[in-house]
């Protein structure tokens, strides 16, 4: 459909999950249009977004399934898990409860998703530093403990690290599917801007992005 999406070398399906109102839809919008919508409608069911990235000369089509966060929609959203190549579990750094839900989301992903689904934790709303309730280190520890790809903090409002997070996913997926693609180095470079990177499961690194980093 999308002219820009007409051709591609790789197609990756990413499912975006997490509690309601952590900014999932805003993350996708930021990724897609680099714009922030203050009053994003809540998502009912699943919304679809596509953007094709160019990574090392390869056109990587990222198909993002933006799901409704509320428990009530679990039935419908779960049906999308199985065919997802990657998963991004978002939480709100200013709301502890959304972080505490992560283990549940991870469990659900294991239950309904593919065995090798690539997973990253996304701590959104890092622009709300003053209201921070979750430290980045906690997310890194959780990601490591659960064997996830990485933990990243983002701000959809400031479009901070949003692109990087998706590119990171794309890169890792590309690596898995195309050995010729450079590995973590580039990856690390991308994440470098962050104050520190946390090594996780597969040599991938998660970078902590501090508010001041921008």
């Amino acid at each position: 459909m999308d002219p820009q999406d007409d051709s591609f070398d790789f197609l990756f399906k990413i499912i975006l999950i997490g509690d309601s109102n952590v900014g999932k839809t805003c993350l996708v919008q930021s990724f897609k249009t680099s714009q922030f919508c203050e009053r994003q409608q809540n998502t009912i069911g699943v919304d679809f977004t596509v953007r094709t990235l160019s990574i090392e000369g390869r056109r990587v089509k990222m198909q993002v399934w933006d799901t409704a966060g509320q428990e009530r929609f679990r039935t419908i959203t779960q049906s999308y898990y199985r065919s997802a190549h990657g998963a991004m579990i978002a939480y709100d750094i200013s709301r502890r409860a959304t972080f505490d839900s992560l283990p549940r989301w991870i469990h659900e992903l294991k239950q309904f998703g593919a065995a090798n689904v690539l997973t990253a934790l996304i701590g959104n709303k890092r622009d709300l530093e003053a209201e921070r309730e979750v430290q980045f280190e906690e997310a890194c520890k959780l990601a490591e403990a659960k064997g996830l790809l990485a933990a990243v903090e983002t701000s959809a409002r400031d479009a901070w690290s949003v692109e990087e997070a998706f590119v990171m996913m794309a890169r890792r997926l590309l690596m898995q599917n195309d050995t010729s693609v450079a590995d973590d180095h580039t990856h690390a470079v991308m994440l470098r801007s962050n104050s520190h990177t946390v090594s996780l499961t597969s040599a991938s690194s998660a970078d902590e992005k501090k508010p001041c980093a921008c």
Binding site: M1, D2, D47, T49, W65
Partner: peptide, 14 residues
């Protein structure tokens, strides 16, 4: 006509 697949279909209606 455009042979939209599952996701394209959904995106089309979105």
């Amino acid at each position: 006509k455009n042979s939209l697949d599952y996701n394209e279909l959904a995106m089309h209606f979105d």
